[in-house]
Design a protein around this nucleic acid. Sequence first.
DNA 1: AATGGCCTTAATGAAATCTTAATACAGGGG
DNA 2: CCCCTGTATTAAGATTTCATTAAGGCCATT
Lengths: 238, 238
Amino acid sequence: MNKPLILVVEDDRAIRKLITTTLETQGYLYHTAETGAAAIFESVSQKPDMIILDLGLPDVDGVEIIKNVRQWSNLPIIVVSARSEDRDKIDALDAGADDYLTKPFSVEELLARLRVSLRRIHYENGKILKDSNVFVNAALKIDYAAGCVWLDGEEIHLTPIEYKLLCLLAKNVGKVLTHNFILHEIWGSYTSDVPALRVFMATLRKKIENNSSKSKYIQTHIGVGYRMVQVSEDGKIL
Amino acid sequence: MNKPLILVVEDDRAIRKLITTTLETQGYLYHTAETGAAAIFESVSQKPDMIILDLGLPDVDGVEIIKNVRQWSNLPIIVVSARSEDRDKIDALDAGADDYLTKPFSVEELLARLRVSLRRIHYENGKILKDSNVFVNAALKIDYAAGCVWLDGEEIHLTPIEYKLLCLLAKNVGKVLTHNFILHEIWGSYTSDVPALRVFMATLRKKIENNSSKSKYIQTHIGVGYRMVQVSEDGKIL
DNA sequence: AATGGCCTTAATGAAATCTTAATACAGGGG
DNA sequence: CCCCTGTATTAAGATTTCATTAAGGCCATT
């Protein structure tokens, strides 16, 4: 129950097996994903405590997955890759990865680096105490690490998509995000289902704007997209 | 915002120089220590933001330094060592190090891993948040990244076509743009609906020229087209 | 098998925007 | 002075885009 949950993203069956059995010996819980699309989905739905990511996936570049996850979470990402070029390492690390191991790697080293990351999210004594990297906008508060949202000091429940949507807007405060950009970031694939986006935006708004302070965090830019504005007391600041 | 202060613990003069000059190029501040004793002393007295640590010091084992520092701080420690054995890595990482690089290492990779640690201690606030390219013309300001327009410090709402039109003019300040050029740029296809263009130009002008400062940003060139002029205080500059 | 949460899809009315047309204005040449 | 060309402005209709609601399907848990 309070063991850390690790998402293993690796398309090579042998290596995946190697990693998962290693994790089992340490008592860690895990999920697996063989494609980038599955990785995105699992990371949202399962809310793992950290991700072990192979860069060489069949469908999308691993760096894209890192960027996607970083839109809504700071959970540790350890890259395990066959690419040993500096450029690859730097790109992955700057995209938001926390560590980078090149294949072939020692399972002992992987475990040690895993412990480093777990330490970072304060995994101690069987209890996960995530560090708090929070976004604050007037009465709205997002704790990225914990994956929680607070409004007027009260926690509100958001579904996975609503949460990602809110994080995406929050991480780009002041910027207008086009429909296609949002769709691409949230769903990963190239859907152009704008009506669906509208529905989610409506439910999200109902949850975060129907409160005592009648703040309007989300503006719609007709024909373009949406943007979150920084609210201060009553006026807007860039 | 202060530059991060980095403590470099390395007894080899050449490598120390390599690291410090690299740090200098990035604008980081640094202190150095050549022995374990000096490292402990410096880390306490200078309160660096992070430590780059060589394990092979003359007086004490690097792991002891890690343990010592971890008794009172969890500032990032990146180990740089000639030892490439798993055992050494695991011992250092489990002692509290955040990362482990084996010599010879790439300075680029070191910098990337350094950025990872800096990100962790929220030094991302130190770097410029958004250098979103903005266009400024007297009281008029366009933030292309945000997709917004301000006039006299107040945001004004433009419809998609108005916004595109304004951007087109702004990106060609001083130049006269013919009707056909504008029509082609905005509508894409080859419409020659000049009357429509006039309507949009009128509404755009009403929005950006009906303000306190009675600046005229847009000139009409009869029979040719329009152009935006750079306004400075009161006079016009090409 | 039933329940509940969540996502999707469709449909409605409302709002904003675009288009189009009509009218008014300014300047130049006859 | 009047007409003509090119432009500015305004208004009304047509179109697009949006918010909101509700219904159906999927998946997981019970």
